[in-house]
Design a protein around this nucleic acid. Structure first.
Length: 690
DNA sequence: ATAGCCAATGTG
DNA sequence: ACATTGGCTATG
């Protein structure tokens, strides 16, 4: 002990004396008789303050200051020269616990205010948020911000509806088409927590199947949660639930309602008056009471990854909840992610899929064509379509609507040679060249270097091709190629929910495909598939397949003439999986490859991005678990043009994910204490690692 | 984070 | 001798 500790010891002695007297506020405020200490999570978005602080509960707040209530507290003030508290700023917080005593050796500040006695942070929600924060190297306060919606006094003042008694267990319905489908429902209805990876059959049945799984869970007296990637799929499950169970058994937690209405619905769930919730990403935290089932639909959809720190993923939160709350899990989609395949391979979940014969019966016929096979006839050329695609569309248009999927403009930022498809690269740094405006010269997206006289390094051609032609231009061109056929577009700005069962060309960007009423589309053309597949991303194949299956699942079965034409290299794995309609097989092969490479989900990764020195500092500071690899750092393009950042990837065995996250968090905290340090962004499970 | 404390450095 | 600045610490 150094001499400086003398004063510290003395101070500790004084504090000890104070504490032994009783936990009490600094100035003689009368305290609550029972449990006069409130343990509070102070909502201050600082990683190093990820801990609880004790406050004294004034007698006047004794009843309202319940665990889970929102409070305001003074925080960060100083004890002045005369031992008087110069109060810090007011901060929001949540009471996590009421206690008789405090571990803290000092006078406790009193709670400034209890905003409302509503117990929004239930013990289960607190445990979940803590687990998510730990999983993603974030702070509890950050996660709570995602999990607990803002307060609206009006909604709190109203009573929530009275809970309904459990419904009867549903019939298997469409689940009869899946081998273990009826058994899965029966298990839910019996109060078990079965975990399955569900490869949904093509066609319009899946919302009803989700509704039946929810109904089976409700029938056991437990609650259910369904998270879907977008508002349209939420609306479809909402409709299916209303049809199966009537209204009032579930709430929709999605952006369609205003904040107050949203909070009203959230409260109905939190108060236990409604036992089922469906919604988009933020619904993953919905505090459903007695959770018996959590469903994630289309877990490969990127909107399941939260853009807010610490970037939790819906699937991972769902898995945490299933484990923590003993609930069943249903990870379903038309496609299968590598992560889902991994759940099956490790035995955590069982596959829930139909027999091959059933799949073949319901899937459309899929034909492949390379786009070098451009149409010979004038009409096909005008539409920039391969002749097979043109003929398919021409033929199908006599029978019903035809869906044309075109990648979103800007989705693939690069250009390619118009003759041989070689990507157009910057001569200086190898980055992708972009066309600025209509007549502006090409410029590198990474270094900004302008390129005045480009020609292809492979074949010498001067012809450029934008890898993606936007939906609008495609619509114009197709409209000319098929005169007198109505053309409708669905995309970012205006998304159509459905189109009538009548001949029409329906141009859509991925994810915006309208459902065709009646039998479904007569055909679908999946254009520019090669552009989707050529993306330099580990997930390019999986992502292309998911998008194709989403569109192709809206097409009639082959037996009813349904045909899909995909313009892509026929030997590509994802293309073959589409032809065979075998997403689970594709995911299995991808998983084999990840195993070879030790890439996620066979390992757990984190990325560390920042100025080169900052990244090096953090890597020097972090105490990685044994066996951890450091890949890189390598230069990456920063958000600002010309900014030079570096990124390192850290890799550990899957079981060491928690150790990696906590090591990174500790290193980040240590670095944040040095205020001069450049910031480093840490991301667990980075999306783009390839 | 941010205020406050302390020590080291700079200035009149 | 006093002001300024940078590093470090605690926050109930």
């Amino acid at each position: 002990m150094s001499s400086a500790d003398g004063a510290g010891e003395q101070l500790a002695f004084i504090r000890e004396t104070v504490r032994k007297a009783k936990p009490r506020a600094a100035r003689g405020v009368r305290l609550a008789e029972q449990a006069p200490v409130a343990r509070v999570l102070v909502d201050k978005g600082v990683l190093s303050l990820d801990q609880f602080f004790d406050y004294a509960v004034p007698a006047a707040m004794a009843d309202d200051a319940r665990p889970g209530a929102r409070v305001r507290v003074r925080f960060g003030g100083r004890v002045g020269a005369h031992g008087r508290r110069e109060g810090g700023a007011l901060h929001d917080g949540f009471i996590v616990e009421r206690r008789d005593t405090s571990d803290y050796n000092g006078p406790l500040a009193p709670l400034a205010r209890v905003l409302s006695p509503e117990q929004v942070l239930t013990p289960a929600l607190l445990r979940l948020c803590r687990a998510v924060a730990d999983r993603y190297a974030g702070s509890l306060a950050d996660v709570l911000q995602l999990a607990v919606p803002p307060r609206h006094a009006g909604a709190e003042a109203e009573p929530s509806p009275r809970p309904l008694p459990p419904p009867a267990a549903p019939e298997p319905g469409g689940w009869a088409r899946y081998g273990h489908g009826p058994a899965y429902l029966a298990s839910l209805a019996a109060g078990h927590g079965p975990r399955a990876v569900w490869t949904a059959l093509p066609g319009p049945g899946w919302p009803e199947e989700i509704a039946r799984a929810v109904a089976a869970t409700l029938s056991s007296g437990r609650g259910a949660l369904v998270v879907l990637p977008d508002g349209r799929s939420v609306a479809r499950v909402d409709a299916a639930l209303n049809a199966l169970l009537g209204e009032g058994r579930h709430v929709v937690l999605a952006a369609d309602a205003g904040p107050q209405e949203r909070y009203r619905r959230w409260l109905a769930v939190s108060r236990g008056s409604v036992h089922a919730a469906i919604g988009t990403r933020a619904a993953m935290f919905a505090p459903v009471r007695g959770l018996g089932l959590v469903v994630v639909w289309s877990d490969g959809d990127s909107s399941h990854s939260d853009p807010n720190a610490p970037h939790p993923h819906v699937r991972e939160v769902a898995l945490l909840r299933a484990a923590e709350e003993g609930a069943g899990a249903l990870i379903g989609g038309l496609s299968t992610t590598v992560e889902a395949a991994q759940l099956v391979r490790t035995g955590w979940a069982r596959p829930l899929a139909a027999e091959r014969a059933t799949v073949r019966e319901l899937a459309p016929r899929v034909r492949t064509v390379t786009d070098l096979d451009q149409g010979r006839d004038a009409a096909a050329q005008a539409a920039r379509l391969p002749s097979v695609a043109w003929e398919t569309a021409h033929d199908a248009l006599t029978r019903g609507p035809v869906l044309i999927q075109v990648p979103r403009r800007g989705y693939v930022p690069s250009l390619a040679c118009g003759r041989c498809r070689t990507p157009v690269r910057c001569r200086r740094c190898g980055g992708p060249l972009q066309a600025g405006g209509a007549d502006e010269p090409l410029a590198c997206a990474w270094c900004g270097e302008a390129e005045g006289d480009w020609h292809c390094v492979e074949c010498g051609s001067f012809r450029l091709r934008a890898q993606v032609v936007g939906a609008r231009r495609t619509a114009e061109e197709l409209g000319r190629a098929f005169p007198r056929v109505p053309v409708r577009t669905s995309g970012r700005e205006s998304v159509l929910a459905s189109v009538p069962d009548a001949p029409a060309l329906v141009i859509s960007t991925p994810g915006a495909e309208p459902v065709a009423e009646g039998a479904g589309y007569a055909a679908a053309l999946l254009l520019d598939g090669w552009a989707l597949l050529n993306r330099p991303d580990l997930r390019a194949g999986e992502e292309a397949l998911r998008r194709w299956l989403t569109a192709a699942a809206l097409v009639r079965p082959a037996g009813e003439g349904g045909t899909v034409v995909v313009v892509a290299e026929p030997t590509a794995r994802a293309v073959q999986a589409l032809v065979r309609w075998d997403p689970a097989g594709h995911a299995g092969l991808e998983l084999d490859e990840r195993e070879q490479l030790r890439f996620p989900p066979v390992s757990r990764m984190a990325s560390v991005t920042g100025a080169p020195q900052a990244v090096a500092d953090l890597l020097g500071l972090v105490r990685l678990p044994d066996g951890a690899d450091v890949l890189g750092p390598v230069p990456v393009a920063g958000p600002a043009r010309g900014e030079e950042l570096e990124r390192a990837l850290l890799r550990v065995a899957p079981g060491q994910g928690a150790a990696l996250a906590s090591a990174l968090k500790a290193a980040q905290i240590a670095r944040l204490a040095l205020r001069t340090a450049d910031p480093v962004r840490i991301r667990i499970d980075p999306l783009d690692i390839g």
